[in-house]
Amino acid sequence: MGIRSSYYKGLKSIIVGLASIVTFLLAWEAVFLVMNNPFFLPGPYQVFLAFIRIATLGDINHVPLALHASVSLYRVLLGFVAGAVTAIPLGLLMGMRTTVRSAVNPIIEPLRFIPPMAWIPLTILLLGLNGYIFIIWLGVFFPVLLNTIAGVRRASITLVNVAKTFGAKDLTILRKIIFPSALPEIMTGLRVGMGIGWMCLVAAELIIPSAYGLGYLIEEYFNYAQTDVVIVGMITIGLIGLAINYFMLYVEKRMFRWRVDVGT
């Protein structure tokens, strides 16, 4: 009975979800019919056709949608890796050493409240057209840093003492106790950072000129007044963001099978 009822529950939630999507599309179609202005707001079917066109034939320069998406993803991954490799070591150090925390906090705390988008003009000026990575790095860095610090400070002093009484030196304690203790928080930071990085990328692509990227696609077709392709770009951004988030949640769940509260 338990299995059957959970099976029906799963089926039910899928049906409800699908019904919700269909309702949304119908509402969209209704607004489209009432407005009767395909120029401003194209209908779902028109967007679907535009999606097929951009995905197969490519945009005005024959660049297919998949290439735009790949370029965007590549930029995000670079910025994400840069953010992770800088924020995690600094976070570990700041979490373990009060002196480092007191030294770094006065610089980092005010910077944290400057939205990455506000850095775009200065970035173009200083780093030129490849400034994307810096903007994404900004988006990734702070959530990873703050979560790493929080994770380190949550590590149990008893576990540190256990390692010490077995004769562990500082580096071993960091590797075998502090880092694994902080890892769930670090992963949360990475997931949040990835989401913010993705948003920063698209914002940067809208502003920094280039011939590739989903943000560029939106910007370019806005200039051609082809709203259907603009919406194709938006939906692609949303779906990829969703896929990344699911992927990272899946990785977290696999990594932290030892935790009681994962996946609930």
Binding site: S156, T158, L159, N161, V162, T165, F166, G167, K176, I177, P180, L183, F256, W258, R259
Partner: peptide
């Protein structure tokens, strides 16, 4: 040394 503490001292991971 083999030290056994009162608190929870196993590595949960």
């Amino acid at each position: 040394f083999g030290v056994i503490f009162q608190e929870e001292s196993l590595l949960p991971w």
